[in-house]
Nucleic acid binder design. Structure first.
Length: 689
RNA sequence: GCCGGGUUAGCUCAGUGGUAGAGCAACCGCCUUGUAAGCGGUAGGUCAAGGGUUCAACCCCCUUACCCGGCUCCA
């Protein structure tokens, strides 16, 4: 009997009978592997387990618990969903159903413009379970486009995909559906149900089942806003029920961190509907957090060599005409106000006004780099459906900086700017960062190629020097210059885009900005835009979600609450609170009108870092019972010791902003631009536990 | 902006074509508490707003505002 030889990922080789498949191979290795297998990689290409292996092939088995394996499970589950929908809704057209992060979706068009309801999801899910129980095979077939067009005669979206692929106009989305070959591949589950697909798929539907349909939503066909709106069903699918449950649990945890929910619960801020969409008011508790954030930011900026400026919320249309915003950004600007001496707009950006400040008098190279800083409140008309709590909002305050520098300074300035940005972000508890470098869109840009190359190199060099992992986004830059965006990873692994550093060749031109160089000639400065928090609102939202509302002590709205055990201890409680207040801490007292346990519970629900219980023992000994958030109760702590510890803890938290990344080779060198990177000296840091 | 779902007390939510209810919070008492919910009482709502259908609308219909989930957008 003829044999074939295949190589495994560990370098070993196996002989199998001719015609053997990856399933045979997996079985020959072990029954557990055979059971977990969902597809295979043969000579670098993902294929079905049931495909015969060519002799000499390099083969790896894909199991369901790998990223590739889950992708196969999800994609296969999407097919099952499409079959269930076509059974339950005769005449339904189906378009695209890919695997995505954590799950899959499929887009449908129902006859008569019908839409799915939540209860439809239950019925579809039930039918899917029947299909899975029936253990239908996934049978692959390949055919010429003409045959495929006939096969999908009543599926216009499928036909469109086939036509695009066969005419060579396929995009990635299409290719994932059918592959890029001349022939079209399809997978058939039943005589009635067949779907276009590149594969691979699990051998049969019985291999699926750890899934849940999550939600229904509208989605444009091919993402085209002008095209038809389809009905999309999202689902999640995993290799086991344990993995599914874990995922659902993660979603619950994320929901508990939702900043909109916590903002209400913790009385931080709100979005009164009377204000209008996308506009927030900060309550006292949120206000104090913001104030602490702002104070810290201002201190760091002073140390970082920035100069503070203030600009109005409105400007004459001419300003935005000159800056180009009216041409490029009008759709996102609030509508104009007609005044007796012209037309005024609420500002969507601070940059034009900062340009005016630069231009207010003649500038010398000796003043550069000129770093202007403003907590500037701007208004942007975000479309109604795009608003999302603090994350996408219409009125917000940017911690906005514009730096004017010479060509020669650009490199150093960007490097020190990146240091500065990272240092401040670290103070807010973020430790993992990634960046994106967006480069020139060759079809849409202003400025010279040399300038772009120089600026892009400077950004690249700064990232390399800092050792910040980053991706290059080719052609993703705005027309006016390349940029770096910095993403942070939060406590549960989600990433948020916060800071941005952008080069701008356009505005200095439009405002005809100049400085007098050492050569006594006029030169055009380069302008850098930089937002660090992005906006205070959004940053607050990210902080709330990152800390799940439990702000570190230095940021917490109330840092300590004093609870007298009984009325007799209220005077002492007030003394303790007064002392803490004098020492500069945010403290309040909850008098003994309720049971102690109840007051402790209330304080815990408010996520206050320290609950201080004082009773008879404490009055006589000048001590406290310290109940820290997330820690154990300690009785009999001397007030002075508590104060010292609190001060040390806060200093330590702030000092995170001084830490440089450890593995960096150049960690010992001085900051590039010769400025103090903004270290806040923690006087009591040595007192840290 | 588009598709779908919502909006009832400060918060979380019940509820019915015949003009509203709970828990928590608030307030007032009693209790005087040593580490996560003591007891009793009071007050609190134009049921998002406007229009329509109806003898009668919080409930059905329409419009608007706002929110939620997506899509698109985020020079």
């Amino acid at each position: 009997m003829a044999e074939i030889t295949i190589s495994l990922p560990d370098g070993s080789q196996r002989s199998l009978a001719k015609g053997a498949t990856a399933t045979t191979l997996a079985e020959s290795i072990g029954s557990r592997l055979a059971k977990a297998a969902v597809a295979a990689v043969v000579d670098g290409a993902e294929v079905d387990l049931g495909r015969p292996l060519p002799s000499g092939a390099q083969v790896a088995i894909i199991t369901g618990d790998s990223d590739e394996g889950r992708h196969v499970l999800r994609h296969s589950t999407a097919h099952v969903m499409a079959q269930a929908v076509t059974q339950l809704f005769p005449g339904a057209k189906f378009s695209i159903g890919p695997a995505i992060v954590d799950g899959f979706y499929y887009d449908f068009e129902l006859p008569g413009g019908r839409t799915f309801t939540e209860s439809d999801l239950e019925a579809i899910e039930a039918r899917m379970r029947e299909i899975i129980k029936a253990d239908q095979p996934f049978v692959r077939a390949e055919m010429p486009a003409a045959d495929a067009l006939r096969l999908f005669a009543d599926q216009p979206y499928k036909r469109e995909i086939i036509e695009r692929v066969s005419s060579g106009a396929a995009d990635n989305e299409d290719v994932s559906e059918v592959g890029s070959d001349e022939s079209i591949s399809v997978y058939r589950n039943t005589p009635e149900f067949v779907d276009l697909c590149r594969g691979p798929h699990v051998p049969s539907t019985g291999r699926l089942g750890h899934f849940k349909l999550m939600k229904v939503a509208g989605a444009y066909w091919r993402g085209n806003e002008k095209g038809p709106m389809l009905q999309r069903i999202y689902g999640t699918a995993w290799e086991s029920n344990a993995a599914l449950d874990e995922h659902l649990h993660r979603l619950e945890e994320a929901e508990k961190r939702d900043h909109r929910k916590l903002a209400t619960e913790l009385d931080l801020l709100s979005f009164p509907s009377q204000l209008g969409g996308g506009l927030a008011v900060w309550h006292p508790k949120g206000g104090i957090v913001r104030k602490v954030m702002e104070d810290y930011s201002r201190d760091r900026h002073i140390n970082g060599g920035y100069q503070f400026v203030f600009t109005p919320h409105l400007a004459n249309a001419n300003l935005f005409r000159q800056s180009g915003h009216l041409d490029f950004y009008r759709d996102n600007m609030y509508p104009p106000m007609e005044m007796d001496n012209g037309t005024y707009y609420p500002k969507p950006m601070n940059c034009p006004m900062h340009c005016l400040i630069f231009d207010a008098r003649q500038r010398s190279y000796r003043e550069l780099p000129l770093r202007l800083f403003e907590l500037g409140t701007v208004y942007r008309y975000e479309r109604a459906g795009t608003l999302h709590g603090l994350m996408r909002i219409r009125g917000f305050t940017q911690d906005d900086s514009h730096i004017f520098c010479t060509d020669e300074q650009l490199q150093e300035e960007i490097a020190s700017l990146l240091d500065f940005v990272m240092s401040v972000l670290r103070a807010f508890g973020f430790t993992e960062f990634t960046a994106n470098l967006s480069t020139k869109d060759p079809l849409k840009y202003v400025g010279s190629d040399e300038a772009w190359a120089r600026a892009t190199d400077a950004l690249q060099l700064a990232l390399d020097k800092y050792g910040l992992p980053h991706k290059i986004k080719e052609g993703d830059a705005a027309f006016y210059g390349p940029k770096i965006d910095i993403d942070v990873k939060d406590a549960i692994g989600r990433t948020w885009q916060l800071s941005t550093i952008q080069c701008d060749f356009a505005l200095p031109e439009r405002f005809n900005l100049e400085y007098i160089g050492a050569d006594n000639a006029r030169h055009r400065p380069i302008m850098l835009h930089r937002a660090l928090f992005g906006s205070l609102e959004r940053f607050m939202g990210v902080l709330i979600e990152n800390y799940a509302g439990a702000f570190p002590t230095w940021l917490a709205p109330v840092q300590a609450r004093v609870l007298p055990v009984a009325e007799a201890h209220e005077n002492y409680a007030a003394e303790v609170a007064a002392r803490l207040h004098t020492e500069g801490f945010r403290v309040d007292v909850d008098e003994a009108n309720d049971q102690l346990g109840k007051r402790i519970r209330a304080a815990k629900m408010e996520k206050i870092p320290y609950v201080l219980v004082v009773g008879d023992d404490d009055v006589s000994a000048a001590t406290l019972g310290v109940n820290p958030r997330g820690g154990d109760v300690e009785r009999g702590v001397a007030l002075d010791d508590f104060i010292a510890g609190l001060r040390a803890e806060i200093a330590e938290q702030l000092a995170q902003g001084n830490d440089r990344p450890v593995p960096r080779e150049a960690a010992t060198e001085a900051p590039a631009a010769g400025f103090d990177p903004g270290v806040i000296a923690p006087a009591t840091r040595n007192l840290a536990k």
